[in-house]
């Protein structure tokens, strides 16, 4: 990744904020709602400035280990299928909330996100804190463009992630959105 920080994975003691947080949009924009991660990331990149490193990842998910290793905070945005209403936003904190095995029916990724988290734990390659935003998908059909239910939630997720990053940086604006599952 061209956006990657130091290869050692250990951060210098007074690292600038950009090295502290990484936000990763996971998904394939050619598979309808699977593209929600990259879509949210594109907005965040515009609005978030130097709050984090902004990275998109489409298939090769083991890259996540390198991308987030040593970061103070990693936020991953991905489409999910859990049976909730399309557009439902799930916010899961690694170590606090159970992260269920990914419904493979909806996964276009070679190694599913929960597996990458499992690898990260086993190999000691985790960020200090990992938050996953999963947006319930309506469709994984081929083609560009999000479904209406998912598209409507994009501004909310962008807002929440920005609040999360500001809070983690120590300068909370108080504009934090709901902490748990948000129903569409």
């Amino acid at each position: 990744m061209t956006e990657r920080g130091p290869a050692s994975g250990t951060l210098p003691p007074h690292a600038p904020p950009t090295a502290e947080a990484v936000v990763i949009g996971l998904g394939n924009p050619y598979r309808s709602d699977d593209g929600v991660g990259p879509e949210v990331l594109a907005r965040l990149r515009e609005e978030g400035g130097d709050l984090a490193r902004w990275v998109t990842c489409s298939d090769e998910t083991t890259e996540l280990l390198q991308l987030w290793e040593g970061a103070a905070l990693a936020v991953v945005i991905d489409a999910v299928l859990s049976g909730s209403a399309p557009g439902t936003v799930h916010r899961l904190v690694e170590g606090e909330d159970p992260i269920p095995p990914e419904g493979r029916a909806g996964s276009t990724h070679a190694v599913a996100l929960p597996e990458v988290i499992g690898l990260g734990r086993a190999l000691g390659q985790m960020p200090r804190r990992l938050v996953v935003y999963g947006i319930e998908a309506a469709s994984f059909d081929t083609g560009k463009g999000l479904s209406a239910a998912v598209r409507e939630q994009v501004p909310l997720v962008v807002h929440q992630v920005l609040s999360e990053l500001r809070e983690s940086r120590g300068g909370s604006t108080g504009a934090h959105g709901p902490r748990e599952t948000v129903h569409a």
């Binding site: 190694v111 597996e115 499992g118 690898l119 086993a122 190999l123």
Partner: peptide, 9 residues
């Protein structure tokens, strides 16, 4: 691979 990594990192 996760189980493999746990036993043989």
């Amino acid at each position: 691979a996760v189980h493999l990594a746990e036993r043989h990192p």
